[in-house]
């Protein structure tokens, strides 16, 4: 496998958000709170041990070596045969609705089989996924979405939308394991992953820049803990529970509710 990766050169980034806008335009991401594949956050100005820093955090899915989201997917697994269009190689894998591509290491979602439960979004320590409930179909409550590393564009020989649009060439995309690639050279020069002691899942977006900027970025944006599973949905469910329990006394609706809530009532 040759892993696709991205370098973000903070020395070049001017924080213009063009990358985030290009991504939204390319993939028609609705403009709504939390709906994004690509983002830019302003960091600082703040004092660091190496001096005053004022930088940016352009972020996207890290297409991790050991993605937490893939293991979290509860969709019914299927046996899939993947084929690399370039080499003709095939690989058989049992996958849920999201997986790590066996040829290029990107993490992809099968929108047809996604249940929209949000388990993957909750599992990602980088918050790279979101669920769009407007895309709900008969089989789901919505669809999870995230950066695909623009694989459909890359297959046509193009750069990812965010990379192509960057006015300062601050985003560099390429093959991580090819020593001749620009990405590999940056990694050799000291580009850093946003990893901490407890969050070591091999993110493949690397950040390069001055020491003070990297220090601020690391301090503010590197996740320190793997997310507790489904905190959002546990909270939602707890909010709903008292209302539903009351339904137990309401005749037919009550029977339906007790049926659904059977195990809960035993608590």
């Amino acid at each position: 496998m040759n892993q696709y990766a991205m370098i973000i050169d903070l020395d070049r980034c001017v924080g213009c958000h063009a990358c985030a806008v290009a991504c939204r335009a390319e993939w028609q991401i609705p403009v709504k709170e939390g709906f994004r594949r690509n983002w830019v956050r302003r960091l600082g100005p703040a004092q660091t041990s190496k001096g005053l820093s004022y930088t940016f955090y352009p972020g996207l899915c890290n297409h991790c070596d050991h993605p937490a989201c893939v293991d979290a997917c509860p969709a019914d697994p299927v046996q899939v045969t993947f084929k690399d269009a370039r080499t003709g190689k095939t690989v058989d894998m049992e996958v849920a609705a999201t997986w790590k591509d066996p040829f290029n290491g990107t993490v992809q979602i099968d929108k047809n089989r996604c249940l929209g439960c949000g388990a993957c979004a909750d599992a990602c320590p980088y918050g790279a996924r979101y669920v769009n409930p407007d895309l709900a179909d008969d089989d789901s409550e919505g669809k999870a979405d995230k950066c695909t590393f623009c694989m459909p564009r890359v297959a046509k020989g193009l750069q990812p939308a965010c990379v192509q649009t960057c006015i300062a060439d601050a985003r560099i995309f390429g093959l991580r394991d090819d020593p001749k690639s620009e990405v590999a050279k940056y990694i050799k020069k000291g580009a850093k992953r946003l990893e901490s002691q407890k969050v070591k899942i091999g993110p493949n977006v690397y950040y390069f820049g001055s020491k003070k900027d990297l220090e601020l970025l690391d301090k503010l944006e590197t996740p320190q803990e793997m997310p507790e599973a489904n905190s959002r949905r546990v909270m939602l469910a707890k909010m709903l529970r008292p209302t539903l329990s009351k339904m137990a006394g309401l005749g037919v609706a009550g029977i339906a509710a007790t049926t659904l809530l059977g195990p809960e009532d035993k608590e």
Binding site: F82, D84, A85, R153
Partner: peptide, 11 residues
């Protein structure tokens, strides 16, 4: 999914 094709899928 870009250059990666799903050529077969079975339950």
């Amino acid at each position: 999914y870009g250059d990666t094709l799903v050529v077969a899928q079975k339950a």
